[in-house]
């Protein structure tokens, strides 16, 4: 269990506790055993990534290998976080996967325009939801991420 893909950490940025729980459970069900850290809003996620405030110690806040990002969040929304991440020369290599509840074409385009790597819609129907997240887990399982 020491393959590189297992060593990466996944950051889940999601303000809704319920969603966060459901996503985490279904990722586990999809076979993802990686460490998943949870950020409840965009500002916190950015602080973590840029090592500010309580995340100043690099040892305690290692870089994630993948970011799962919700769009609608308090303090700072997903677009802003995405833009900041993709502006930063060091952070821009981290793949960002938008995980959100709308399929609005404008928002999708906006996300890709800002440099998101993928876009996944959270369906309301639970079985579909389960399938999507599991599929995402399988996908993550077979993809090599940059270290």
């Amino acid at each position: 269990m020491t393959t590189p893909r297992q060593s990466i950490m996944i950051m889940l940025v999601e303000d809704d506790e319920g969603h966060q729980l459901l996503i985490r459970e279904n990722l586990r069900a999809g076979g993802i055993v990686n460490e998943i850290i949870h950020m409840s809003n965009g500002q916190e996620a950015l602080d973590y990534l840029q090592r500010r405030g309580k995340y100043q110690d690099p040892a305690k806040s290692p870089r994630p290998g993948l970011i799962l990002l919700d769009i609608k969040m308090p303090k700072m929304d997903g677009f802003a976080v995405l833009a900041k991440v993709k502006e930063d020369a060091q952070l821009r290599l981290i793949p960002v996967l938008m995980l959100t509840s709308t399929d609005d074409q404008l928002e999708v385009n906006k996300c890709y325009g800002l440099g998101a790597n993928s876009y996944v819609v959270k369906p309301v129907k639970y079985d579909e939801f389960q399938e999507r997240v599991k599929a995402l887990g399988l996908f993550l399982d077979i993809v090599r991420f940059p270290e």
Binding site: L22, S101, T102, D104, V124, Y126, D127
Partner: peptide, 21 residues
């Protein structure tokens, strides 16, 4: 309003559905 409808009104639905399951 549209964004609220599409995001915020749907987000609880996911929870209701997910947790009731």
């Amino acid at each position: 309003l549209l964004r609220v409808v599409s995001h915020d009104l749907r987000a609880p639905l996911i929870n209701i559905q997910g947790f009731s399951q």
